[in-house]
Design a binder for these strands. Structure first.
Lengths: 322, 322
DNA sequence: CCCTCTTATGCTCAAGATAAGCATAAGGTC
DNA sequence: GACCTTATGCTTATCTTGAGCATAAGAGGG
């Protein structure tokens, strides 16, 4: 073993991506960054009083936002920013990101916490009504970038763009949210890329590149989105976001909002039914605008029974944009 | 913000689970623990010279074992041991585990590194020829434990055992390797549970509980196994373990060894074929013991093309032990 | 060379799961 | 009552999957 000096002590930053559904939109809890320059995810350093990492996350979030956390899982540990080495070698920060899902609660109006729609940060990820308008300019600029960089070091670059964004005969894969953000970062199409270099970011308002975030927080959020989109298919995490009882359409809308795709209604119901993930409460939802729907609740036992209890979803219009 | 003292500096331990295939068996690289008390995964503290976390892992592994790493991915970050609070608050260690897959290479014989068959650590996980003999005693003792703890705080405990180990009409789910290890730990059936408490572990040799490891390293290995078993189904990671060219049977045997299940031969080939994950080299394998098999190689392009290019596998005898 | 053993490979068939849509039910509004 | 909206049941064509039969092509022994 070499001397003590070689071992770098690190500050451990705990960062939380807290997701909820509000008015049918997936939202993330975003506070002001310490320097007020941008929005940030709630976070704080691991402290001696924290008994576990999770406890630390819960504590910081409660302190900063008043939000109590239920479901929580570890997302990823970041040691550097987009592969760059850290600035000060003997005082590094590693940051451990957690994903938390909280239920909307009944009183959406009285909840004054700073929730933000997640598609404000990722406008190109919302394909519920076809490819969104933000895609156009982004894809055009990605194409330019690919042509330029393509000749040099990455001959498959254009192909990669197409695959990642579902162009040609590649279907759109909603789970690749992180890949897409990283590609946009690489292509210098998100403001964070410029500011990480130390450049002044061109502050184009209402950018197709979406609302930027402090530090690498938007990347962490993209990681969370990819994780959620993958996980709802094989674990019943969707129900963490639902109220105690709900209609199947509400459930479907939530699945659609999270995955950013629209689903076939009847097939969705069949899927839920045959996995017996829910049971009827016996009550009816009023005010659905049409025939009243039966209210259902999540069957907690399902977590145990099923090998992969999740909402296997498939887009109605599967795929393949021209 | 509170005073500086509240922020605990941490030593960051980097731990590597390095997997390869040797003689058709999945193996893990295991060194002697610092105190020689048990086998351990290669690991070392993050140092100031390490530019990134990954670089730190690579560097320690090479120093300790001479093994160079190719494919590498982050596994999990552990801040405590099995949920227990850390001993000394102002000097905590968090440990970041990585998974690396390395290709066997052509000269298995000349590789003197300390590879260990992973089923030596998890004898109950190898279901290639039915439920292994180690299962019997373990299940019996798990049953006893469940009966005892069941009355008190966990009425569903017996059910949970059955689901986790695939008893009754629940099929065996090979991906639940981590859950199973954690259940055995909880039930005090692995030596690590006793030694974490400070007790002397009863050193029964040739235990059905498998070979123990230093600290929580066996838990980390279980995490890796679960991850691999899940991932080979949707990403072409299996090929990281294969030589440049191989036969389909070799590939199948590797998939079987990793997942711990035996697969239907013709269906396995169909699956690989229809995903066009491999292409023929034109050569034939000699010495297969029967009709010579065509040699194939992995099609790297497949990584891009396919939405989920992996070896979707399903056990021949799916399931349901009596 | 024939018989037998081993592995490779092609093909079929029945079940089960999925994608899409038709049709009907049951509320509300004018 | 006509018409709109959402809920829910059911059908059909297609794919996918699990399982197994059958044949091919090598080796070795007689």
């Amino acid at each position: 073993m070499s001397g003590y000096d070689d071992i770098s002590r690190a500050t451990v930053e705990l960062t939380a991506v807290i997701i909820t559904m509000r008015d049918g939109e997936p939202c993330v809890l975003a506070v002001d960054a310490p320097d007020r320059s941008a929005l940030a995810l709630p976070s704080g350093p691991l402290q001696s009083g924290h008994r576990t990492l999770q406890a630390g996350v819960r504590s910081w979030v409660e302190k900063q936002t008043g939000q109590e956390l239920g479901y929580i899982e570890q997302l990823y540990t970041f040691g550097d920013r987009h592969g760059r080495a850290l600035a000060v070698p003997h005082h590094r920060t590693i940051s451990i990101a957690y994903l938390a899902l909280v239920c909307a609660g009944d009183d959406v109006a009285s909840d004054t916490r700073p929730w933000r729609r997640w598609y404000a940060f990722f406008p190109w990820e919302d394909h519920r009504s076809g490819r969104p308008s933000a895609s156009g300019p982004l894809l055009r600029r990605l194409g330019q970038w690919a042509r330029k960089s393509g000749r040099l070091n990455d001959p498959d670059c254009r192909e990669r763009v197409g695959l990642t964004f579902g162009i040609g005969d590649t279907p759109w894969d909603e789970e690749r949210a992180l890949e897409r953000y990283e590609m946009l970062y690489e292509a210098d199409l998100v403001p964070e890329a410029a500011s990480d270099r130390g450049d002044e970011a061109p502050t184009t308002k209402s950018n197709p590149a979406g609302v930027p975030m402090f530090s690498d927080h938007r990347r962490i959020l993209a990681t969370a989105i990819s994780r959620i989109r993958a996980k709802i298919k094989y674990r019943p995490v969707l129900f963490e976001l639902m109220p105690a009882s709900f209609t199947l359409l509400q459930l479907q809308k939530a699945a659609e909002a999270l995955s950013g795709m629209s689903l076939h209604k009847q097939n969705f119901r069949r899927l839920i039914a045959q996995q017996s993930l829910v049971e009827e409460t016996g009550e009816l939802a009023i005010d659905t605008g049409g025939r009243p729907a039966k209210l259902v609740r999540f069957r907690k036992e399902a977590t145990l029974e099923q090998p992969t209890p999740g909402v296997r979803l498939k887009a109605t219009r599967r795929g393949a944009y021209p």
